[in-house]
């Protein structure tokens, strides 16, 4: 519980609106690459949200989870892209 607690939680709730918009794009998206674009954006916003959450509650472990999530989501994006290209693994 820190000095900027309320501000950081307001920022977090505004980021939830961005996540909602990305989810709408994932549901609507006419083609598969559209959905992957929405997923990529969503991953980045989730990482930033985790960093803010860790700062608001002063927990370093959540920022560590954010680092690992960023790297794993990058790998998953690359694999989905490879799959869409039709390449062999």
């Amino acid at each position: 519980m820190i000095e900027f607690y309320n501000t950081l939680l307001v920022v977090l709730s505004l980021l939830l609106i961005c996540i909602l918009m990305a989810i709408i794009r994932i549901i609507l998206g006419p083609t598969a690459p559209d959905r992957v674009v929405g997923l990529d954006t969503l991953n980045t916003i989730v990482v930033v949200g985790m960093v803010i959450f860790g700062a608001a509650y002063n927990l370093v472990i959540i920022v560590d989870v954010a680092i690992v999530y960023a790297l794993l989501s990058f790998v998953s994006t690359l694999f989905i892209a490879k799959y869409l290209e039709g390449g062999r693994f």
């Binding site: 083609t31 994006t77 869409l84 039709g86």
Partner: peptide, 13 residues
């Protein structure tokens, strides 16, 4: 890098 991969995959698909 991820954006580049998605763009190339979208064009090739």
């Amino acid at each position: 890098t991820g954006a580049h991969a998605i763009a190339r995959a979208a064009y090739r698909s």
